[in-house]
Design a protein around this nucleic acid. Structure first.
Length: 817
RNA sequence: GCCGGGGUGGUGAAAUUGGUAAACACAGGGGACUUAAAAUCCCCCGGGCUCACGCCCUUCUGGGUUCAAGUCCCAGCCUCGGCACCA
């Protein structure tokens, strides 16, 4: 017999049958009525895919299956589960690919979506295809534009000329989040700086709240940590230094610095401005004007990759200007250097080379004075410094503050600065405003009309969507403006306010805006007149469980939190965190190595599904390792789960109506308990192992199963292997889908208890034997039995027993001496 | 450099949170069935010593706490992620 013929289990036939049944019966779709009235709604969300031309990859299937198992489990527990799926199809990725193969994205994307849909159906996810969405569909991006208008009206969207990250290869602006150590995350080209007018969302207004709420949302620890690092709150002080002439006269100019260590101000021996700092011209004297402008030019040209290299040696230029250290009254020189960044803090620092390593290196390179103001243990005010000292200690060379412990000196200095009017405590964030405009084609046009008389005017809501026109020449160029700016008949329009000639905004918005609110749309896709229906939104949101990759820990997840907060503040939502629970899944590697085309170890799902079926593939993926940690995919490994399904099939088909064996029944109850507890916590690999063990117990010694033994197992495997479970469930005489009604098995605690338990017996902590005793045996009896065990008795013979440790049901340890 | 996750058989991994290390699988070895192969079923499978009952060693390394440590504490090594001249 061949693999397929050894028994009657034929995965592809079973899977096709049930996929058709689900489709015809609408098993996986909620009606509008259900959405409006579901009593116990459960919103199971997974990060929607970008529909690439290559099709679904194993990583997608892994993530979706993990989420699907969770959703199906809750459904079998009686919840009304909504599990939608859609497509994140706008963006530079699609556009670049379309350019590469010479197809228009408006033709490419629908084909990719069709292919993805076919594959997604094939893996047997419980997706509600009646509530699917595609971000490139005007009926969707109409509301993306609406979200933009809401932020615009609230004053949270503004257009400003800003130095932006420009990728010369993709010829577009990148968000800070898309720049990885100075290079474009997509093509790794070094990013340049350009001054372009851009639309920004003021996410920094929400920085504190975005940080605070991390305290109560139930998210993967790693994701929370990544977000809080990204927001990057630091506490410090802004201090004002007055710019002075060399004869100490005040020039009337001030420069504010940001520092987290105001307590080291007595050690500030010079000041550094960022090369882009607006005060550079004012402080530079004639003698240094030439070298300063040369240095600034160099800094401007140098890309962010080289500029942000930490191991680069320090460069800079003296401006010829001075300012007064407000603590000491002494004159200190003002330098410019590219190690000070314009977009953090105030773009200017007081340099304390004695206690900041970067300043130390700079001072060493340019022979600037290094002054110790903190002495560590066993150090004094004049212990020489061979590097910056940042440890604990007390202040020295700091006038009246000498001797202050540095652990509480920051507050002291902040107060002191404030009382003298030259500084105050402040909080600074690393987070920047969200640049949402893209000078590209493949995105929703930003719904703004520029009018010479009225300025930037929002497109009236009734005129939405602003349709992205089909443009054959959509290739970006180096001009820095969108391809739409070449389409005069599109951008020429009239001002909605004055009716005069006006011009449409030709930038499109960032894809992260599309995905920033999509979870709100899914339950309301039946509605054309609103982005999300208030009643349905109240019932279904926030999302109960969201599952996705940690590569979106800061980008998508932070933006969607921000938009949710804004929509709440504007009265459209009554919650401000979109996802109650977020779990990041792990990554799949193949044969011990990261999957890559060059390694040739990329797993192509379709042939595997064809050979073994979606059910076996799903189980194997979930069996590889802990879902939140990922696993190593090995080609032969699928044999285990595949064989398991075959055995389960045979066992179910040959089951009798007899009474269950008590030992087997106990095992079944134990398994139900374990699987019930673990599946909701995403403990899939161990749940599957438990079910395998249970089936082994049922079949041990070649025995035939009874129906009551195998039926719970069929229900428990259903979230993992839904097709096979349906077929066997039907075989057992059930008329309805296993997913209709609450078919998750229950367990009886009293049937779990073993009558006899195995107890380890140790002597001095070493295992010397095991005994079997009644579960509820008295301690004395257990100890007597332990002592009588042959091997144990040998070790106890002739020695003094000092102590006996008894852990009921686990072990007895004789401590002898 | 800073912040997180992790290091357990040939391999993927378990371990009731301090209580019999290696469950469940893959690969490998042996056997049954078969003319034969495949499939299926049964047995073995961390290392060493022993005819055997058993004994010793073993969870990255080294210390410590404890009757008892893969699990807790200290020091170090390796690895994978994130952030990074962020003042």
């Amino acid at each position: 017999m061949s693999n397929q013929e050894r028994d009657s289990y034929n995965p592809s036939a079973v899977e096709e049958k049930w996929q058709r049944n689900w489709e015809e019966r609408g098993t996986n779709s909620l009606t509008l009525e259900q959405l409006k009235s579901a009593k116990d709604p459960y919103y199971q969300l997974m990060m929607f895919p970008y529909p690439s031309a290559e099709g679904l990859h194993v990583g997608n299937i892994y993530a979706f299956t993990g989420a699907d198992v969770h959703g199906r489990f809750f459904r079998m527990q009686g919840r009304t589960v909504f599990e939608p799926m859609g497509f994140d199809a706008f963006g530079i990725h699609s556009e670049n690919f379309a350019l590469k193969i010479g197809t228009h994205p408006m033709d490419l994307i629908p084909a990719n979506v069709d292919n993805f849909t076919r594959q997604l159906r094939r893996i047997g996810g419980m997706f509600d295809w009646k509530h699917s969405l595609d971000t490139t569909d005007p009926s969707y991006y109409k509301w993306t534009q609406w979200v933009f208008l809401k932020l615009f009206e609230a004053g949270l969207a503004e257009q400003k000329k800003a130095p932006v990250n420009w990728c010369p290869s993709c010829m577009t602006v990148l968000a800070n989040e898309q720049v990885i150590t100075g290079a474009c995350e997509r093509c790794t080209t070094p990013v340049e700086q350009r001054e372009i007018k851009q639309w920004f969302f003021k996410i920094t207004d929400y920085a504190q709240r975005l940080l605070d709420n991390l305290g109560f949302i139930d998210w993967s620890e790693t994701t929370l940590k990544a977000q809080s690092n990204w927001i990057g709150r630091s506490e410090g002080a802004r201090l004002n230094f007055s710019v002075v002439y060399s004869d100490d006269r005040d020039t009337g100019h001030n420069i504010e610095v940001y520092t987290t260590r105001p307590d080291t101000i007595f050690g500030a021996t010079y000041m550094v401005l960022s090369p882009e700092h607006p005060m550079v011209d004012k402080v530079t004297d004639d003698e240094h004007r030439h070298s300063v402008s040369e240095y600034r030019e160099e800094a401007r040209k140098s890309d962010l990759v080289t500029r942000q290299k930490t191991d680069k040696s320090k460069t800079g230029a003296f401006t010829g200007g001075f300012c007064a250290n407000p603590a000491t009254g002494e004159q200190i020189p003002i330098w410019i250097a590219d190690y000070v960044l314009m977009d953090y803090g105030t773009g200017a620092i007081m340099a304390v080379p004695g206690h900041d390593q970067r300043d130390f290196e700079f001072a060493t390179a340019f022979n600037l004075p290094i002054k110790r103001v903190v002495a560590g243990p066993e150090e004094s005010s004049d212990t020489p410094l061979s590097e910056a000292y940042i440890g604990p200690g007390f202040l020295v060379n700091s006038g009246e503050f000498d001797g202050t412990d540095v652990s509480d000196s920051v507050g002291v200095f902040t107060k002191w600065a404030k009382s003298h009017g030259w500084g105050e405590g402040t909080v600074n964030f690393r987070l920047h405003d969200w640049c949402i405009s893209r000078q590209r084609y493949w995105g929703p046009p930003i719904p703004i009309i520029h009018c010479d008389n009225c300025g930037s005017v929002p497109v009236p809501e009734e005129d939405l969507p602003v349709i992205l026109p089909r443009v054959e020449d959509f290739k970006p160029d180096d001009s820095g403006v969108s391809p739409l700016a070449r389409v005069e008949e599109w951008y020429q329009t009239t001002c909605p306010e004055c009716g005069g000639e006006a011009r449409r905004e030709t930038d499109v918005s960032d894809t992260f805006l599309d995905s920033g609110w999509y979870f709100l749309r899914y339950p309301s896709t039946d509605f054309e007149d609103t982005a999300f229906d208030p009643e349905i939104t109240r019932r279904w949101l926030p999302v109960d469980t969201y599952i996705g990759g940690n590569e979106h820990a800061v980008l998508h997840l932070l933006y969607s939190r921000f938009l949710t907060m804004v929509l709440k503040d504007l009265g459209y939502l009554d919650f401000e965190e979109p996802y109650d629970v977020f779990r990041a899944h792990g990554l799949i590697i193949a044969e011990g190595a990261k999957m890559s085309k060059s390694r040739g170890n990329v797993i192509i799902p379709d042939p595997i599904i064809e050979e073994f079926g979606a059910d076996a593939f799903r189980i194997y993926l979930m069996f590889l390792g802990p879902f939140e940690e990922g696993g190593d995919y090995r080609t032969e490994g699928i044999q285990g789960p595949y064989g398991f399904l075959h055995r389960l099939w045979d066992t179910a088909l040959t089951a009798t109506e007899g009474t269950p064996d008590p030992d087997v029944e106990r095992k079944v109850h134990q398994t139900v308990k374990q699987v019930t507890e673990q599946v909701q916590e995403l403990g899939y690999n161990t749940s599957i192992a438990a079910m395998m063990e249970c089936l082994n117990a049922i079949r041990s010694g070649g025995r035939q199963a009874t129906r009551t033994e195998v039926e719970p197992l069929i229900a428990m495997i259903a979230p993992f292997a839904p097709h096979l479970a349906e077929e066997l469930w039907e075989h057992l005489g059930h008329k309805e889908s296993i997913f209709e009604g609450s078919n998750w098995p229950s367990f009886d605690e009293s049937k779990i208890i073993e009558s006899q338990v195995s107890v380890a017996v140790q002597v001095n902590g070493k295992l010397r034997g095991t005994i079997s005793v009644p579960q509820d045996a008295a301690e004395d009896d257990v100890i007597i039995a332990a002592r009588e065990e042959d091997n144990v008795a040998r070790y106890l013979n002739g020695v003094e027993e000092r102590r006996i440790v008894h852990v009921p049901g686990r072990l007895v340890n004789f401590v002898v001496g």
